[in-house]
Amino acid sequence: MTARYCSLAQQPAPAFAPGLAAERLGALMSGRRMWVNGTVLHYCFFDGGDDGSVIPVPGSGGTRRVSWVGAEEQRDVVRDCFREWQGLGLGVRFAEVADRSEAEVRIGFQEGDGSWSYVGRDALLAGLNERTMNFGWDLTAPGERVTALHEIGHALGMQHEHQSPFAGIHWDDEAVYADLAGPPNFWSRDRAFFNVLRKLDPAEVNGSVWDPQSVMEYPFGAGLILEPEQFRRGVQPPGALSPLDKEFALRWYPPLDAPRPAALVPFRSAPLSLGPGEQADFAVEPPETREYTVGVFGAGDSVVVVFEERDGEPRFLAGHDDGGAPHNAVIRARLVKGRRYFVRVRLYSGWGSGETAVMCW
Results as ranks from 00 to 15, higher is better:
residue 32 R to Q: 07
residue 157 G to W: 09
residue 286 P to S: 08
residue 113 D to F: 11
residue 231 F to N: 01
residue 148 A to C: 06
residue 124 L to G: 07
residue 176 V to C: 05
residue 261 P to R: 03
residue 58 P to H: 15
residue 226 L to D: 14
residue 201 D to M: 08
residue 47 D to Q: 12
residue 164 S to C: 12
residue 77 V to Y: 06
residue 225 I to Q: 00
residue 196 V to M: 15
residue 210 W to D: 00
residue 99 D to K: 14
residue 213 Q to W: 01
residue 50 D to L: 06
residue 192 A to D: 04
residue 62 G to D: 08
residue 341 Y to S: 04
residue 111 E to P: 03
residue 192 A to W: 00
residue 210 W to I: 01
residue 48 G to S: 07
residue 255 P to T: 06
residue 192 A to N: 03
residue 304 V to T: 08
residue 192 A to P: 00
residue 161 E to H: 09
residue 47 D to G: 14
residue 81 C to V: 04
residue 322 D to V: 05
residue 147 T to P: 01
residue 345 V to D: 06
residue 329 A to P: 04
residue 321 D to N: 13
residue 342 F to E: 01
residue 184 P to R: 05
residue 136 G to P: 04
residue 268 R to C: 08
residue 221 G to Q: 01
residue 361 W to D: 13
residue 131 R to M: 02
residue 206 N to T: 09
residue 266 P to G: 14
residue 211 D to S: 05
residue 19 G to L: 15
residue 227 E to T: 15
residue 141 A to I: 00
residue 50 D to H: 14
residue 180 L to C: 05
residue 13 A to I: 05
residue 24 R to E: 03
residue 9 A to F: 12
residue 60 S to N: 12
residue 117 S to R: 00
residue 250 L to T: 04
residue 228 P to E: 08
residue 177 Y to K: 10
residue 295 G to I: 03
residue 100 R to S: 07
residue 35 W to S: 10
residue 190 D to R: 12
residue 127 G to N: 11
residue 157 G to C: 13
residue 92 V to D: 02
residue 308 E to Q: 14
residue 54 V to P: 09
residue 242 S to I: 03
residue 25 L to N: 03
residue 337 K to F: 04
residue 196 V to E: 01
residue 173 D to Y: 01
residue 199 K to R: 15
residue 174 E to G: 15
residue 268 R to W: 09
residue 122 D to L: 15
residue 342 F to K: 02
residue 30 S to H: 08
residue 306 V to T: 08
residue 241 L to R: 07
residue 122 D to P: 11
residue 33 R to E: 03
residue 141 A to W: 00
residue 67 S to I: 03
residue 176 V to L: 02
residue 290 R to P: 02
residue 301 D to L: 01
residue 326 P to I: 09
residue 195 N to E: 10
residue 331 I to H: 12
residue 252 W to A: 04
residue 348 Y to L: 02
residue 34 M to G: 04
residue 106 R to I: 04
residue 6 C to P: 05
residue 184 P to Q: 06
residue 199 K to F: 00
residue 292 Y to C: 06
residue 257 D to P: 03
residue 32 R to N: 07
residue 310 R to P: 02
residue 171 W to D: 02
residue 124 L to C: 05
residue 200 L to A: 10
residue 57 V to Q: 15
residue 354 G to N: 10
residue 115 S to K: 02
residue 13 A to R: 11
residue 277 G to I: 00
residue 248 F to L: 08
residue 3 A to R: 12
residue 256 L to K: 11
residue 57 V to M: 11
residue 318 A to E: 10
residue 43 Y to E: 05
residue 283 A to P: 06
residue 9 A to D: 11
residue 12 P to Q: 14
residue 253 Y to D: 00
residue 70 G to C: 10
residue 246 K to A: 05
residue 149 L to A: 12
residue 307 F to R: 07
residue 359 M to T: 06
residue 190 D to H: 07
residue 94 F to H: 10
residue 188 S to Q: 00
residue 345 V to K: 11
residue 69 V to W: 08
residue 43 Y to S: 13
residue 68 W to Y: 11
residue 283 A to I: 05
residue 72 E to N: 15
residue 314 P to F: 00
residue 192 A to L: 02
residue 335 L to P: 04
residue 6 C to K: 13
residue 114 G to I: 04
residue 325 A to M: 12
residue 292 Y to G: 08
residue 252 W to R: 05
residue 361 W to N: 09
residue 74 Q to L: 09
residue 271 P to A: 11
residue 207 G to N: 07
residue 219 P to Y: 08
residue 85 W to M: 10
residue 202 P to E: 07
residue 303 V to W: 06
residue 341 Y to Q: 09
residue 83 R to G: 13
residue 146 V to F: 07
